[in-house]
Amino acid sequence: MSMFQTGVLDLDSKSPLAEIGGDTSTFTRVTFPTPFPAGTTVIVIPAVQTFNGPQTPGLRIANVTKDGFLIRLNEVYATATAKSDGLHTTETVGWIATTV
């Protein structure tokens, strides 16, 4: 039987792009309201709910566990020659987490 949890948070980026795999030092920790059962596989699906900044905000998720996950706004590249600086104003991000 699947279990679902949802949440919302305000998230911004005051750091350069996260480009090094595994470096989660600029991520924000989200803790689930109720931990998922031990031994379950949890997936998280985030979505930006607002349009406050002119650049396209990307989202990175890391370290999903039964207790929570890490998330970060990470602007997407505009083109191959125009790289984002990574800075982004506050956006509202909704998420859903479920077991599979």
Rank of each mutant, 00 (worst) to 15 (best):
G21F: 09
Q5W: 06
G94I: 04
V48S: 05
V44T: 12
F51V: 13
L17E: 05
T89C: 11
F27D: 06
Q49T: 15
R72P: 00
A47C: 08
A97T: 11
Q49H: 09
I45V: 14
P16L: 01
T92K: 14
R60Y: 05
G86M: 02
V30S: 00
G53M: 00
M3S: 10
L70Y: 15
F69I: 00
V44R: 00
T34H: 11
P33N: 14
T50H: 04
A47M: 08
P33K: 10
V76F: 14
T26Y: 02
T26C: 00
F69K: 02
T89L: 09
T24W: 03
A80R: 10
K83V: 11
K14G: 09
L9I: 13
G53T: 02
A38W: 02
A78L: 07
V8A: 08
K83L: 11
A80T: 15
A97L: 10
L70T: 04
P16Y: 02
V100T: 12
F32Y: 11
D67R: 01
Y77V: 01
T41Y: 13
L59P: 07
F4P: 00
I71T: 05
G68P: 06
T99A: 05
E91Q: 08
T40D: 14
P54D: 07
A18L: 04
T24E: 03
A82L: 15
M3Q: 14
T6L: 10
Q49N: 09
A97Y: 03
T28G: 02
A78V: 12
T56M: 09
F4H: 09
Q55H: 04
T40F: 06
L9W: 07
T65F: 15
G22H: 05
A97F: 05
G7R: 11
P37G: 14
V76A: 13
T24C: 03
P54S: 09
M1S: 12
L11A: 13
P33F: 07
Y77P: 00
N74L: 06
S25M: 01
F32T: 15
T6E: 15
E75G: 12
Q55F: 02
L59R: 07
G7H: 12
T79I: 04
P54W: 08
W95F: 08
F4S: 07
L87P: 00
M3H: 11
